[in-house]
Design a protein around this nucleic acid. Structure first.
Lengths: 339, 339
DNA sequence: CTGAAAGCGCTTACAG
DNA sequence: CTGAAAGCGCTTACAG
């Protein structure tokens, strides 16, 4: 910051009024004589005065500053959510800081020191214990409903996304088309060694196996894959195996695209040899050739719900968890086995 | 914010010392007797004290808060730059707010009121006049070097990305392979009616036409396309025409993918019928089948350069513009005409 | 209708 | 070695 920022005092001097009058004019919340008002407005223009939001924040204990914590914003799905949220936040006078998730108490403490009015969190990897630090200190917090369910504070409001229902629909679609050998990829950054049945996708996947008495082959589950390259290699291996699946559910469109690349590298065709379903309906899904079948997560609704719940909460209103439906968009990457 | 946030005063009371001592302990910049120090540390722990960064900002005229203004963060290229920058910022004690570009003076004023220590701007659409408001008010500002060159303040430091050189290399590659009918797509959100020869890609594109005495067919230039759908439709039209180009340069990988989708929809093959080159080397480029030839823009270098220049500037150092090289990554989407 | 004053939570020069 | 005090730029209850 420049050391010569124009302050309220400078404006007052220039306009020949007291600083208090300047506040009354900029906030427009008290009667000020027309003449003084004009002098103040004139001085503001001449000097290029910008009221100091930080000072206001200190005085009024309100920062109009929201934190958005997210594991991977390079995924178009989340990037678009951030853009939407920033739009709504801007309309309401708030600003959003984007924060990469870090599993580190010191980092959370640094964030708390920033006096955010609220926090929105979308994570597969942050422990409930660390998430809870926000509500525990009194910061209104919204959590995108997903895998982390253990020990979440009751003070947190959930935007529950029906990924479970979407998964059931996707799986039913595959089963109806005659698939029984269905694989599943979860690329979220979590421990590799165990299958996480709390993951709503895994849960739906397992459920359908049970419902239709299909054998669940653990070799068909790729979990904790570490980045695009890893997903490529692991799915390449999977489809190279003798007992390869005929269909695969992939937790994200771009990763579904990667899986398709691996499939094609093996000279297999989509959907003739392998059916693929993704999640999110991002650009790549819409323009893939063939068009990707995918579980649509309504981004606009999520962004609006999260931000409006949060602002209501900041303003002291009582808010309830909200449920967001998902939808299966049927493209051309799934094929009936019975044809 | 909760009304009962723990302050320095509370800690002092609990520890039986003066508030000043608490500051000395948290800042660790003055001698404090071992005994008092321990009492303070203990009280901080018991009460869960988090120093108020906003108050510090007001007092020290430093917010440790940086604005990143960008037209479209849903593009993986920019999203990854944001993630990288956030990482470096975090190491240095700064936080980044992501701001969608808005061509609106009121909005810029609101940002200025926020007391950002600095701003990083990457835009194709914001006028120089509005960009200059930041340096004019004394806010250190970094601009990603690109199309907006008119009237930029000398106080702005540029991270110049050699898009021009990258374009020359891409075009040379196509020319050497025998292409003479080369199209170009610029999907940035600008006015549609005129060809913007200030655009570094257009400039390189035109340059090569001149160098090799190739006729520049204006119908081959798609500019001001409005989103993915528009790029799809316009490129579909282009390749449907009788005198269709044999190669096309697309200003961004995902858009290059869309162009390929359009090409395939016409039952044309890449690269047999149409050669395609993109920009950025994002995930889609790496995993496209065939692998996309693309102009690589080194994101890590850009993020680091921008943030370190900015922090140096904030700290009062004299900094100079920096040049970032680009590279042509040769994939499998270009084919020689002479084979 | 207007303005002096208190106070938000900090830092730090200065005096003891 | 420690602490009272000034001050960062604001808002607003209160007194005139």
């Amino acid at each position: 910051m420049s050391s010569k920022r124009v302050t309220r005092k400078d404006v007052a001097k220039r306009a020949g009024v007291t600083p208090t009058i300047v506040s009354y004019v900029t906030n427009n919340n008290r009667y000020v004589s027309q003449e003084k008002r004009e002098r103040v407005l004139q001085a503001i223009k001449e000097l290029g005065y910008h009221p100091n939001t930080v000072a206001l924040g200190l005085k009024c204990k309100k920062s109009y500053h929201i934190a958005f914590i997210c594991d991977d914003i390079s995924n178009e799905h989340f990037a678009k959510i951030v853009m939407d949220m920033e739009d709504i936040a801007n309309e309401r006078g708030y600003i959003i800081s984007f924060c990469n998730t870090r599993r580190d108490e010191q980092y959370i403490n640094k964030l708390i020191s920033r006096q955010f009015d609220g926090a929105i969190i979308s994570t597969d990897i942050l422990e409930g214990e660390l998430i809870n630090k926000f509500p525990d200190i009194g910061i209104p917090t919204i959590l995108f409903g997903n895998r982390i369910h253990e020990n979440i504070s009751k003070d947190i409001t959930f935007v529950n996304i029906d990924i479970y229902g979407g998964t059931l629909r996707a799986m039913e679609h595959l089963v109806k088309e005659g698939h029984t050998k269905i694989a599943f990829v979860d690329s979220s950054l979590k421990e590799q060694d165990t299958i996480d049945y709390n993951d709503l996708r895994v849960k739906g996947y397992a459920e359908i196996h049970e419902k239709y008495n299909m054998e669940l082959n653990k070799d068909y589950i790729i979990q904790g894959a570490n980045g695009y390259k890893d997903v490529f290699e692991k799915s390449y291996q999977l489809f190279q195996s003798k007992d390869r699946p005929t269909a695969i559910l992939v937790n994200d469109d771009m990763h579904a695209y990667i899986v398709m690349s691996a499939v094609k590298s093996l000279n297999l065709q989509v959907p003739e040899d392998v059916s693929i379903i993704g999640y999110n309906d991002t650009t790549i899904a819409k323009y893939m050739v063939p068009r990707l079948t995918t579980v649509e997560i309504p981004r606009k609704k999520i962004s609006r719900a999260a931000l409006e719940l949060l602002i209501d909460k900041i303003e002291g209103k009582v808010v309830k968890d909200i449920d967001i439906d998902t939808d299966l968009i049927i493209g051309n990457t799934t094929k009936s086995m019975t044809q």
